[in-house]
Simulated assay, not measured.
Amino acid sequence: MSLLRRCFALFALCCALPLHAADLSIDTGHGVRIWTTAQLLTSADAQSVTIPADVAFHRTMHYRAVPLHALLPGLAHGDRLKFVANDGFSVDIDADAILNRTGAQAWLAVEDPQYPWPALPGNKGDAGPFYVVWTDPAAAQISSEQWPYQLARIQLTQDAASRFPATAPAASEPANSPVRRGYVVFQRTCFACHTLNGEGDARMGPDLNIPHSPTEYLSADMLRAFIRNPQSLRRWPEGKMTGFPTQASLSDADLDVLLAYLTYMAQHKVEK
């Protein structure tokens, strides 16, 4: 076969291959299992799921999806899982929310290479190949950060304070203080994209304490407005931060304790 024909054959083969087929790595402490797109789409647990108000697409979406708990053997109540995306996003989700069989339920949506999903709004790229979606998310107060897309890996992990001690308030802080409650909110919202004191898994946004906390250069009102709508402070079409515009995504009370935590941590910098 001539070189030209070989190149043409290779090109034709590449065009025939599904461009969005991928592998998902899952480790719940019992060894790593690799799932392919084809395996997930043809799984006996796979079914059609409708999401009325999809967090990423902002409209009703229909997916081929597998109940997430069906892919997590040995997962127990009290466990914690880390979800890592290809774009540097990383979020922890409690096993209790995933193991729930009533009310809010987590699904792994799988992109079919033959019928790819549309592009994300706002020039944010693609959501595939794997995307965690929820039915009835309000029943368990599932936040918008707990819908990781472009998913590449799921693994068992420890709590944030154990893995990243420089992000945790001092042990002397009362258990129900605004600072400690704000740390919980921080983990659920900001920690998926940002580090703090140089610690964290995410690589999407800047550190929120080093060299300066946003509480040191923004007034409380401006910071609240920025968290609700980042474009209200800096108009940047390419900005990735979507904000938390509603009480459902982040209540005023949660926003208050989040600011209390960030203000506290500004006085507890740890240089790496």
Rank of each mutant, 00 (worst) to 15 (best):
M1E: 06
S2E: 06
R5G: 15
R5W: 12
R5E: 15
A9P: 07
L10F: 14
F11H: 04
L13D: 04
L17K: 06
P18M: 03
P18R: 08
L19Q: 07
A22L: 01
D23C: 06
D27L: 10
G29T: 03
H30A: 12
H30E: 14
V32W: 01
V32D: 11
R33C: 04
I34C: 05
I34F: 04
Q39V: 00
L41K: 05
T42Y: 09
S43M: 10
A44T: 09
A44D: 07
S48G: 05
S48F: 03
V49S: 00
V49Q: 02
P52T: 03
V55I: 14
F57W: 06
T60H: 03
Y63A: 14
Y63N: 14
R64M: 08
R64L: 08
H69Q: 13
R80M: 11
L81Y: 00
K82M: 07
A85R: 05
N86S: 11
N86Q: 11
D87N: 09
D87T: 09
D96E: 06
L99Q: 03
T102L: 12
A106R: 00
A106C: 00
W107G: 02
L108Q: 05
V110L: 04
Q114K: 09
W117P: 09
P118E: 13
G125D: 14
A127D: 09
G128S: 04
V132T: 05
V132F: 10
V133E: 02
D136N: 14
A138V: 08
A140M: 05
Q141A: 15
I142P: 06
I142Y: 04
I142G: 10
Y149T: 00
Q150V: 01
Q150Y: 01
Q150K: 06
L151T: 04
R153H: 04
Q155A: 12
L156V: 13
A160V: 05
A160W: 12
S162P: 04
R163C: 03
R163A: 08
F164K: 03
P169C: 12
P174F: 13
A175D: 15
A175E: 13
S177K: 04
P178D: 07
G182M: 07
R188T: 09
C193G: 14
T195F: 00
N197K: 02
G200F: 03
A202S: 10
M204H: 14
G205Q: 07
D207F: 02
D207G: 02
D207R: 03
N209V: 01
Y217C: 03
D221R: 15
F226Q: 06
I227T: 10
R228F: 10
W236Y: 10
P237V: 06
P237L: 07
G239W: 13
M241L: 09
F244D: 12
Q247A: 12
A248W: 11
S249Q: 11
L250A: 05
D252L: 08
A253E: 09
D256T: 12
L259D: 02
A260Y: 15
L262M: 15
T263R: 15
Y264G: 10
K272W: 08
